[in-house]
């Protein structure tokens, strides 16, 4: 099982870098995870998406897909891909310390 070090804390992650235990996550870790995921700088807009992911996970037990993000997060699909070019739902979930969203749309 891989381990990653974010903000000085060792955390267990899966092969794709997603947290095994979402409760081990804290906001101070996000910039380090983002760098690992290829997002160099987290802007306020990135944070809007990350906090929305976290909120959805807390409410529903799973992260939303891009379709849901585009409709409900206040960030359009176009902007989502500008913020997270390598897959908004996937990257934002990883940076938010929650499991990879499952869903085909």
């Amino acid at each position: 099982m891989p381990t990653a070090t974010y903000a000085g804390h060792d955390v267990d992650v899966n092969d794709e870098g997603f947290f095994l235990d979402p409760s081990a996550w804290s906001e101070e870790m996000a910039p380090d995870i983002a760098k690992d995921a290829g997002v160099d700088e987290l802007t306020d807009r990135h944070w809007d998406v990350i906090r929305f992911m976290r909120h959805e996970y807390d409410e529903h037990g799973a992260g939303p897909t891009v379709r849901v993000l585009g409709k409900a997060s206040g960030v359009s699909v176009k902007e989502l891909y500008q913020l997270f070019p390598k897959g908004p739902a996937k990257l934002a979930a990883r940076i938010a310390g929650i499991p990879k969203p499952r869903g085909c749309i």
């Binding site: 897909t65 891009v66 070019p85 897959g87 908004p88 739902a89 996937k90 990257l91 085909c104 749309i105």
Partner: peptide, 11 residues
């Protein structure tokens, strides 16, 4: 369409 959208979602 689902495959194209899914491919982009995976980066």
């Amino acid at each position: 369409l689902i495959m194209a959208n899914g491919a982009r979602a995976e980066g």
